[in-house]
Design a binder for these strands. Structure first.
Length: 470
RNA sequence: GUCCCCAUCGUCUAGAGGCCUAGGACACCUCCCUUUCACGGAGGCGACCGGGGUUCGAAUCCCCGUGGGGACGCCA
């Protein structure tokens, strides 16, 4: 059997971390089994769907590199097919019209809540042999409801959570088409999943409660079309915020593109997401190629997982270290531009950006940190007054002055610069940092940097000498 | 409220009845490296939600609590 998975977001918001993880597992699972990954846009909620949200989702998927083999399919473009199937269900008695008004349903719900029973449709328009239906109101456009079985249990083996069983009498006859005729989510999912030949439905665990309804519909459809099969389900548990709280629009939920913005590499986000709620022994760091070989559904934890930004940062630092300067340069140039450091227009690109990145990439957690920390190579440093006062003391100033004139005569290479500093240190019988620290502060503005001789070599003689002004 | 799901260090997790004195990773702490800060290296701190069973033996299986989460829309 060919594995076919899908990611089916509704374009009502950005692609957040939970959605991205679901997409990642669907994508990887399809890749592992040489199957197909399908992108389907569930846009039947016309009022809330926006082109901006659609674009944001597409951008997020692209940034992460989760490429689909088919689609994107848009449900709004599949209306004819849904309506045809709706009519078939009406004809064969698996669905029926319901003329309840929204007010009527609201009243029903409230009274059920008051009696402490689960609120659900009471089936007043459900046709049964020998049953008298209410008088059809003139002013109500009907919805279509699915005639859900009333007895027995729906049982399926969830690939993540194991066997789940829900009694049919817990379920009601759900609306599958609105009064304006448009089909609803649960119906479209069922039609699309079977029509697209989806073998594994991998989705968030907020859909567990929809699954028995969907299975019932699938079975109703299958009774009239033997090609229709119930797919396998895998429900991924949700991701909690750093603080253990549920992610929501109001609290903590951010677009995956925000991570891009914040200076995270997609490699790091992907690796982190793959490892969140899934494991392959003790493996922590792995490529997507590796993940696609290893991924399986039985090692996904059924419990919710809390997001940990520190660990993401650690992975990000790792992938920055791994990356070549050339790979990072374009991105870093853009981030520098945002800091008003325009290096694109510098004539002979001195200092060399790749070399600077090379010097700094082992010390940054994010690309933003990296850009910020190398800005002083391309513009006057921001001086840390406290650090300057601490290291550039009056007693050392004459020595630095002397060093400056020595420096002005050396051939500009890190080794020679190091030697010059060493000579000064020896001459005045000092410890190396005693000289290196004031230099560092003068040149970089702050008290932390890579080897100061290497920094100086890269920055260029003229600029270094200019910055050593006391 | 009703139904469904979940429960190992602070966090992510390993764990399929004996390999468990519970392993790894992030974070934290100490030391080493060192030209400051990082990086890197070596250590350390730190968990089986509670109670009952089953079994020679339970983190692992069962039951009951407790706690957490989800669902209950003409949203998806």
């Amino acid at each position: 059997m060919t594995v076919r998975t899908r990611f089916a977001p509704s374009p009502t918001g950005f692609l957040h971390i939970g959605g991205a993880r679901t997409a990642l597992f669907s994508w990887a699972f399809a890749r592992k089994h040489a199957g197909d990954f399908i992108l389907r846009i569930e846009d039947t909620d016309v009022a809330r769907s926006t082109p901006e949200a659609l674009q944001a989702i597409l951008d997020g998927m692209q940034w992460l590199g989760l490429s689909h083999d088919e689609g994107p399919f848009y449900q709004m473009q599949r209306m004819e097919m849904y309506k045809k199937i709706l009519q078939t269900m009406l004809d064969n008695g698996t669905a029926y019209y319901c003329y309840c008004s929204k007010d009527e349903l609201e009243t029903l719900r409230e009274s059920q809540m008051q009696q402490n029973i689960k609120p659900r449709y009471d089936g007043r328009w459900r046709p049964e042999t020998g049953k008298n239906l209410p008088t059809m109101p003139q002013d109500i456009a009907p919805v279509i409801r699915f005639k859900n079985p009333q007895t027995g249990n729906v049982v399926w083996h969830d690939l993540v959570k194991g066997e789940i069983s829900i009694a049919n009498d817990e379920l009601d006859d759900l609306v599958i088409a609105r009064s304006d005729g448009t089909p609803t989510y649960n119906f479209c999912v069922v039609v699309d999943d079977s029509e697209m030949g989806i073998s594994h439905v991998i989705r968030g665990d907020d859909h567990v409660n929809n699954t028995p309804r969907q299975i019932n519909m699938l079975q109703a459809l299958a009774a009239f079309d033997t090609k229709i099969k119930v797919p396998q389900y895998a429900h991924l548990s949700m991701i909690l915020g750093d603080d253990g709280q549920k992610l929501s629009k109001r609290h903590g939920a951010v677009s995956v593109m925000q991570y891009h913005e914040d200076g995270y590499l997609p490699e790091a986000v992907l690796n982190y997401l793959a490892r969140l709620g899934w494991s392959h022994g003790d493996e922590e760091i792995f490529s997507m190629q590796q993940f696609c070989e290893w991924v399986d559904l039985d090692h996904i934890t059924p419990s919710a997982a809390q997001f940990n930004t520190d660990k993401l940062k650690w992975l990000n630092a790792h992938y920055i270290k791994l990356a070549t300067p050339e790979y990072l340069a374009t991105d870093i140039t853009k981030r520098l531009a945002k800091l008003n450091v325009d290096i694109a227009s510098r004539p002979n690109s001195q200092p060399n950006l790749d070399a600077v990145i090379h010097l700094y990439k082992e010390r940054a957690n994010t690309l933003n940190e990296l850009a910020l920390s190398i800005a002083y190579f391309f513009q006057k440093p921001v001086i840390d007054i406290a650090a300057t006062e601490k290291h550039l003391t009056d007693d050392i100033k004459p020595i630095i002055s002397a060093l400056k004139s020595t420096l002005s005569k050396v051939e500009w290479q890190a080794e020679n610069i190091h030697e010059a500093i060493n000579a000064t240190v020896t001459k005045y019988q000092l410890k190396f940092p005693k000289v290196a620290m004031p230099l560092r502060v003068l040149i970089t503005g702050i008290a932390q940097s890579p080897s100061i001789d290497q920094v100086m070599a890269l920055l260029g003689k003229e600029e270094v000498l200019a910055r050593i002004s006391l």
